[in-house]
Design a protein around this nucleic acid. Structure first.
Lengths: 123, 123, 123, 123
DNA sequence: GTGGTCTAGACCACT
DNA sequence: GTGGTCTAGACCACG
């Protein structure tokens, strides 16, 4: 499992970790049942503080992506298709913002559609 | 021009203002050349701190969406189709995150595509 | 608003804080819209570290009991009757454990029922 | 005697063991005088560490639910109706927390009473 | 002033 | 060795 911190990324470190772990689950590099490195290990590898990796793991636990239990390593959960309305709402709102931003930056509708389609096809 | 602050929105107020102004430009409610209310006026209308509206306007100026000149009102700029590669990259990255999140939350690809399409058609 | 830490309580401090805040909401001492003391303030009052009060507030935010936003104080949310099945399951399981424990400790069924009823009537 | 470890249960393994043994005593599957499997046996059956089963047995001994003597198997004790005030206090406090949590999660008083009654009737 | 993130180092409960 | 809790002190973004 490879994770890297981008110093020039404006997002907090723990969010970068969260996203990269999620990406690897989506891509199949990490599968349900797989163990993550311990908070201390990962912190050491990335050259950051233990608490920072921990806060990433905590968020992932909240989102039911991993399970944390004392004495054990973090484990990837199996996906639970919740069909939650709120998630759809969330996706919609963020999408609207992205599109608005892209349009105001000069991207054409076709341009945007192209980019979106390319991403959706990769799944 | 109507702007409203949502107390239950977790985003900072200044971002809510920025987004709503952008939305209105995209929808044509605000057009290039139009004047925005003064920092003081808007702050008063929304019942928030002047610094907050000011930081929203500053951000919009940075993004070249509006022009600020001392003693004058903020004015909406013309759209500058920059074709900037960075914007496309930005859109792509954020889109990937949105999609990854949606997938891990149990939304199907078709579900996501539906929501995306609906948003793109509204433009 | 009064919160007190019990040194002899085996539960972690942040859980004691969470429970007392919830209690006060249930009893009406704290109402939706009310502001909580800042993490630093509460930490100072209780003679504990800022991060400890923060972790309590964070958990309450997760559980949608309060809202946290930069630059603002924590605010009590309005109750959202979710009707979540998982909550009922949770209640059932914990209740079973409590009852099992009470029975093995020598309490009679009537004894337990009495205690339960007294609590339910107080609402 | 059947005990199973739930990997997705957030509670520590030793508590799961304790609870299941107590459950079986309450249900009559295990009776005073019955012998439990040895620490090593149980650990082997469950595929867990010996220290874990040992700590479960030790806790049960502390609570006077079983008796441990070197060279012998653990034995279920007779129930000792202690009438201890502390147990009632304990039950009351935990019950209050459960109810507070359930109420804040949107469950109605009637809902809670239903669940409680169903559990109490099963004894 | 507020909450949000990060570092550093400690001790505890669990496996 | 694992995660869980707590302390201490720093700097940043938001209002």
């Amino acid at each position: 499992m490879w994770i890297s911190i981008d110093e020039h990324d404006s997002r907090p470190i723990y969010l970068q970790i969260i996203y990269q772990i999620k990406q690897q689950i989506r891509q199949g590099t990490l599968k349900p049942g797989d163990e993550l490195p311990s908070v201390r290990e990962l912190a050491h590898i990335l050259g950051i503080n233990m608490h920072t990796t921990r806060s990433a793991y905590l968020k992932l636990q909240e989102q039911k992506v991993i399970s944390l239990r004392p004495g054990r390593r973090a484990v990837i959960n199996r996906l639970t298709p919740s069909g939650d309305k709120q998630i759809q709402e969330n996706l919609k709102i963020h999408l609207q913002e992205l599109i608005t931003d892209a349009l105001l930056s000069g991207l054409s509708v076709n341009n945007i559609r192209q980019i979106v389609d390319r991403e959706l096809e990769q799944i």
